[in-house]
Amino acid sequence: MPTAIEDFNLALPMQHSARSETDLASLVAQYSGLLFRVAHSVLRSRSEAEDAVQDTFVRVLEHQRTLHSIRDMRVWLVRITWNLALDRRRRIRPDQIDDLFAATLVNPGTPADEVLHEAQRMKTILREIDRLPKKERQILLLSALDELGTTELAAVTGRSESAVRALLFRARTRLRTRLEKGASA
């Protein structure tokens, strides 16, 4: 059982192109962290996010013959991971996972009588994020990772850069409005 990345010899059988990006081990080493955060922003579970990353690289293995036609590997992997994470979130029970994730967001110094209230507030925000329109939610979560620029976000979502900026603004405004309305109600 190999323990180090260097022990794996999973060079993809590319006949026409010998680019280093097609080496699966290097792909995993380069993009697994980003893909994990992308999946975690949707799933909010570390184990589920890791499974989504594994599924992503299995897809890479299945499409190894067409990898040479992919122009931007980073964008392509993020898009696959996002879609796989959405599919996986439909199969799991998000409420229980959000409870656990909201509990980790509570400040450690919070008094015991306010912990439950703060966790409930975090869970409300997570629920409002999920209620956002599909593209706005995607732009909001991916931009929060601070690893994808506007150009890459535009490539991932299939929109223009100006549309990405507009979607991000609308997402924040809509979320703020809903949260204020929920707090006043």
Partner: peptide, 25 residues
């Protein structure tokens, strides 16, 4: 909201995740 987005940004992948991913592949 900023705290939630920062938490999502700062999430680190599990230890030895790369090895597990490569092993499964």
């Amino acid at each position: 909201l900023k705290r939630i987005l920062n938490a999502l940004r700062d999430t680190e992948p599990p230890r030895a995740m790369q090895q597990r991913v490569l092993a499964s592949v």
